[in-house]
Amino acid sequence: MHFYWTSTVFALIAFGVLYFLLSKYAFGPLMSIMEKRRVHIQDQLAGAEESKKQAEQLLEEQKAAIQQARKEAYEIIEQSKLTSSKQAEDIVSAAKVEADRLKAEAQKDIENEKNKAIAELKTQVGQWSVAIAKEILGKEIDASAQQAIVSQFLQESGGKAKQ
């Protein structure tokens, strides 16, 4: 084992040259690339964080909107339930009223018809009785006077019949 200082000096020079070349042409650019990547990743992370926040906010908004919609739907259903039951009642009561009215009208009609029929019958009976009386008596009497007598008679008998 000998010590040659020339080797020492050469090693130092070689090391210096290697250091210079490596830092200038190899690891300098490499480290700048690594730094760029670090910045890139940080940007991406920040972007992802931002997107996440936005997504969360949107989700929150969506949730609120759904809640709102649900509430509104519930209200609408309640409203329509109320309205429909009220409408049903209305329809029923209207129908009842209509039915009552129709009934009353019908009764009135019946009454009218009855009265008319009675009146007609009265006239017919009067005429018939005049004709009968004419036949029986063989003589003409004043038709209007006859009518009055018949009416009076019928009135009395009708009154009796009613009683």
Binding site: L18, L21, L22, Y25, A26, F27, P29, L30, I33, K36, R37, H40
Partner: peptide, 16 residues
């Protein structure tokens, strides 16, 4: 050898 390794490795640098 060291220079060769370093140069080959850093010839086409890429971030991504």
């Amino acid at each position: 050898i060291v220079l060769l390794i370093a140069m080959l490795a850093t010839r086409k640098l890429s971030v991504t």
